[in-house]
Design a binder for these strands. Structure first.
Lengths: 128, 128
DNA sequence: ATAGGGGTTCCAGTCGCTGGAAGGTCAAGC
DNA sequence: GCTTGACCTTCCAGCGACTGGAACCCCTAT
């Protein structure tokens, strides 16, 4: 399978797939013409990574998850721990964003948005 | 005022302040010994930027907001537009994170987290 | 023979810092 | 006067996870 087809199947840009090879996430073979040759399993791994990335897991987490996935003797607790940490990370980010949103939306509401210079948004940034 | 005091006043690391000078956000003078010399207004600008950054505005947005702040003839509509775009950005990010959270928390709940290898999280990543 | 659509490599840039090395400056204490 | 330590300076490199572009090779169809 060429890189283009893998991209089409996984939804990953070819650039990203090459990058994933660069950093050792996958190790496709090579055709005699120098083209990367992906087997089903490499393609599957990439799809796995694509889904993990879509859940916000870091590349390092993806490495860990892939290793666990390929380890028949894994404990699901190990997977769960990684996932829980990611969930906590998301929650931290969510609450940070939510508090930004609260502040900003208050300021936006307070701003007339007309052609006069008076502006509560700038006032707040200048001295909250 | 030396960079250290500006850092203490604004809460910004000195590294960041030097970086902000590098990219032209502020233009402190220099003492005869080569040290940066910040006046009240430069320090105030940095505090302004620090607060804008804390609301998630990009450096480019900060430039725009600073310029508007310093323009007595601005229209508050121009400020509001920048803020509204940022609010929308935050909302997009929030909903993306929320949907990650939903998926991930469902998977985490479904995972026993014991020492057996069977794991819904990995199953989902492998084929959702 | 040529055109196009694959593929390859390598290098640089993104964003917003952050770390570290190598060195100059200043105030306090001995 | 000398040392110590905290400050300051510059410059260069690296983070994460790609992304863009240049320059080139390969394959197929017309």
């Amino acid at each position: 399978m060429n890189i283009g087809e893998v991209g089409a199947r996984t939804g990953l840009p070819t650039k990203t797939i090459r990058y994933y090879e660069d950093i050792g996430l996958v190790r496709p073979g090579r055709d005699s013409n120098g083209y990367r040759a992906f087997g089903e399993s490499e393609c599957h791994k990439l799809a796995f990574v694509a889904r993990a990335r879509a859940l916000g897991f870091s590349i390092q987490d993806c490495r860990t998850l892939l290793a666990l996935y390929e380890d028949d003797g894994r404990a699901s607790a190990d997977v769960k721990r990684v996932a829980l940490e990611q969930l906590e990370q998301i929650d931290r980010k969510l609450s940070e964003l939510q508090s930004m949103r609260d502040t900003l939306s208050g300021l936006v509401k307070a701003c007339a948005g007309d052609n006069r210079p008076d502006c509560p948004i700038l006032n707040d940034l200048a001295a909250p």
